[in-house]
């Protein structure tokens, strides 16, 4: 089932993705009409607060949305296939193979009762018919690639014998075992020290550049995105409110929410002044207000915002879902 009209270079094309959770309290539209493209070898930063739907977007791509959640609409085009319509077995053969995922908390991602070699070898053997020794070889190479010293010894260790940063490296090594075309990274450095974070980011950037792997980097940390991503998509209440090239969006944000997010980064504030913040909190997805979801926290909101804004292409490559964008600020 091929669809015409896609750029051939795109690794992933998400179109109007809708992932809803059918809870007792009502339908939670965690992801409500999200579209984006990730080019080959590029890094997309998916940014937003907790509960904005960025992680659910990631899990939707890899097909791991658990009940009561379900992908109810849209398409996820990957290598000519719509992932939203694949069978469980077809999806399994892609997972960890062509699409890999790295999780947020490295202390929780590795099984505490299985040795590292078991957890790596099983990943190799899940997708390729190779004997244990070859698989072990591959595991050892992958550990070496992510900068783990004496990988032979480390293979025999249990996860609790590793530090957090080392565990995340192991998780990344597992993700790299099959040289995937796409890695979905769900806040993989949030739980780490800032120095370890820097090392891991540099490592990942290098790997992506050398292997041509595309990355979706899910985070709430704009400074990470600034250094790593090529493109950025800002999510709010299950929708993308602004997207574009990372330098453009961060230097001249259009959506008031993006402006607020950037303003909330402490280092951006002047010394001695009270830190800036976005007032209020993300609205409950169970009862979103009509019109723009950011309306209640936005200083620019007026009657026009009672309508639901579309994503307007306001500058070259940069779009924002706002009737009152910050167009007056010119990119520096």
């Amino acid at each position: 089932m091929f669809q015409q009209g896609f750029a051939v270079t795109a690794t992933l094309e998400v179109r109007d993705l809708q992932t809803h959770f059918f809870t007792r309290a009502g339908v939670v539209k965690a992801v409500d009409g999200v579209s984006f493209t990730v080019e080959r070898g590029k890094v997309l930063g998916l940014v937003g607060e907790s509960g904005s739907g960025k992680s659910v977007t990631g899990f939707s791509i890899i097909g791991l949305v658990d009940a009561p959640g379900r992908v109810v609409g849209g398409s996820i085009w990957f290598q000519g296939k719509d992932l939203a319509r694949l069978s469980e077995e077809e999806m399994r053969s892609l997972r960890g193979n062509r699409i890999a995922m790295i999780f947020q908390d490295p202390m929780m991602t590795l099984n505490p009762v299985l040795r590292v070699d078991t957890q790596m070898i099983e990943t190799v053997q899940a997708h390729e018919q190779v004997d244990r020794e070859t698989a072990r070889q591959r595991a050892r190479d992958a550990l070496g690639m992510v900068g783990i010293p004496s990988p032979d010894e480390r293979l025999m260790s249990y996860p609790h014998q590793f530090s957090g940063g080392m565990r995340q490296r192991v998780a990344i090594a597992i993700a790299l075992l099959h040289r995937p075309d796409l890695i979905v990274a769900d806040e993989p450095t949030t739980a780490l020290d800032v120095t370890i974070q820097g090392q891991i980011l540099a490592e990942v950037q290098k790997l992506a550049a050398t292997t041509g792997t595309s990355l979706i980097w899910i985070t709430h940390d704009l400074s990470v995105v600034a250094g790593l991503a090529d493109d950025i998509a800002v999510m709010y209440a299950g929708r993308i409110v602004e997207d574009g090239p990372v330098s453009q969006v961060l230097d001249a944000p259009l959506h008031p929410y993006t402006v607020g997010l950037i303003g909330s980064v402490p280092s951006r504030n002047k010394r001695g002044e009270p830190l800036r913040q976005i007032p209020g909190m993300t609205p409950s997805l169970l009862k979103l207000p009509a019109g723009c979801a950011f309306r209640s926290r936005c200083e620019r909101a007026d009657e026009a915002c009672l309508e639901h804004p579309a994503l307007f292409g306001l500058r070259e490559g940069q779009r924002a879902r706002c009737f009152h964008p910050h167009l007056e600020e010119v990119p520096a």
Binding site: G96, N111, L114
Partner: peptide, 29 residues
């Protein structure tokens, strides 16, 4: 519900492998 089970699935392991190795070993203790 643990992350490592989700991670095991994200690695593309079969359902049986996840259940009988990753889950089972943990509940055995």
């Amino acid at each position: 519900l643990m992350d490592y089970v989700k991670f095991a699935r994200a690695k593309g392991l079969s359902r049986n492998r996840v259940t009988y190795v990753h889950v089972f070993k943990n509940i055995l203790i």
